[in-house]
Simulated scan of single mutants.
Amino acid sequence: MDIRKVTVIGAGIMGSGIAQVIAAAGINVVIEDAYSEALDKSEKTIVDSLSRLVKSGKISASDSENIRSRVGFSSDLGEAVSDSDIIIEAVPEIPDLKRKIFADVEKVAKPDSVLATNTSNIRISEIAKDLKNPERLVGMHFFNPPVIMKLVEVIKGEHTNDEAFETIYNLVKKIGKTPIKVLKDTAGFVVNRISAPESLFFCMLLQTGVDSPEAVDTFAKSQALPMGPYELMDYVGIDTVVHSLEYYSKTLSGDYGKCTYYGKMIKENKLGLKTGEGFYKWENKKAIIPKTEPSEKVELMDILSLEVNEAVKLIEDGVATPEDI
């Protein structure tokens, strides 16, 4: 497929980042959102991101101007998608919301356009179940922040046809990312499925009073990890973590429903970076982590054993190849 225009639905952090990456690859892109304030914030996010790249010497001022010129903004869904070759949904992890968006998109999109969802956990077939043509919906899971993170999961739903799947796979390569093929539609796909037990594990550490977030994160960084688990959850959003655990409790195991600590944080509006406070207070997009000694109650093998167990399950179930995992 000759891709001349892409539409990204959702002007949040992920949608803005995805649009910037696509524009940087020389493709025209439009960000659609029903809220004009969200579009204004998205534009500022992209301008600020490009400015940082220029200051760091990664792109030139001319490159920045060209990338920005390829990004458009619209609050009119029909106008945004009617002539798009690929339409990427990047809204919160709420199945009903995603289904409604694709139902609306299907009414105004070209019949040969490829639809993609940036869901991080929800089965593609579940999102596609009300579509008249579910075969053209593909999972296209970017990681946060999309401008920096290289990996993209390309997920095949139960009805996804090979042409749509390969179109998205090739697009991922064209925009300079590293795609892996998720061949079986399962909750969490590969990366989040492997890390899912960790989210529960770190919740239970707090829920049972084993140790503090700062002690565990200090330990993680002492093991050469760029972020500890609690800082990472703050960065991603506590609400996102909770939505994921709730979904896993329904689709994978009821054990994921045992975590209540994160839910209390949502009630207190402590969602992390997006609200300025989660496990930590955030200033200038950086977590203020109290200095403390590394935890002696957590070992690296605790985490690795959880990851290896889940990875083996994925290989046994044919979700992805050992090489991709």
Rank of each mutant, 00 (worst) to 15 (best):
D96M: 07
K258L: 15
I86H: 09
E299Q: 15
L245Y: 05
A80T: 02
E153R: 06
E106F: 08
L271P: 14
H141K: 08
K270D: 09
F102G: 09
V138I: 12
P226C: 13
D211Q: 00
G72P: 02
P290H: 15
L300Q: 08
I238K: 03
N66W: 05
V105R: 15
G139F: 09
G139Y: 12
G26K: 10
L151H: 13
K291M: 07
N192G: 05
D234H: 00
A19S: 10
I238A: 04
A90K: 13
S36R: 04
A103Y: 08
T117M: 12
K297C: 00
L137C: 05
P146A: 06
N309S: 08
S69E: 04
F102T: 07
A103N: 10
S60A: 02
T117D: 11
E296H: 10
T178D: 04
K174M: 13
Y169I: 05
S49T: 07
V210F: 00
I87W: 12
K184E: 12
K285C: 08
Y280V: 02
D48T: 11
T208C: 01
G139L: 09
K264E: 12
N170C: 01
E323R: 15
S253W: 11
G72A: 12
T7K: 04
K129R: 09
R52I: 01
P145I: 06
I266S: 01
K107Q: 07
N284E: 03
G78Y: 05
K291G: 06
G15W: 01
E158W: 10
F189P: 07
V308M: 07
P134R: 11
I67H: 02
E153N: 14
H159I: 06
V182G: 02
R70S: 09
P294H: 01
I122G: 13
D162T: 01
V81R: 07
S244P: 03
A224G: 01
P322E: 02
S295I: 01
T208W: 04
D48R: 14
E283K: 14
G26T: 09
T208M: 05
D255E: 14
K221W: 01
S16P: 12
T117R: 07
E283T: 14
E158R: 13
D83Q: 10
S42E: 06
S113K: 03
V91D: 10
E316A: 13
E153C: 14
A24R: 10
V105T: 15
F165V: 01
M14R: 02
I18F: 04
G10A: 03
K129D: 15
I27W: 02
I22C: 13
T167E: 15
L151W: 08
P179D: 11
E89G: 04
D317W: 13
C259I: 12
K173G: 14
H141R: 09
E158L: 11
S64L: 00
N118I: 09
A80R: 11
E153D: 11
A90Y: 10
P134N: 08
M265N: 11
V319C: 12
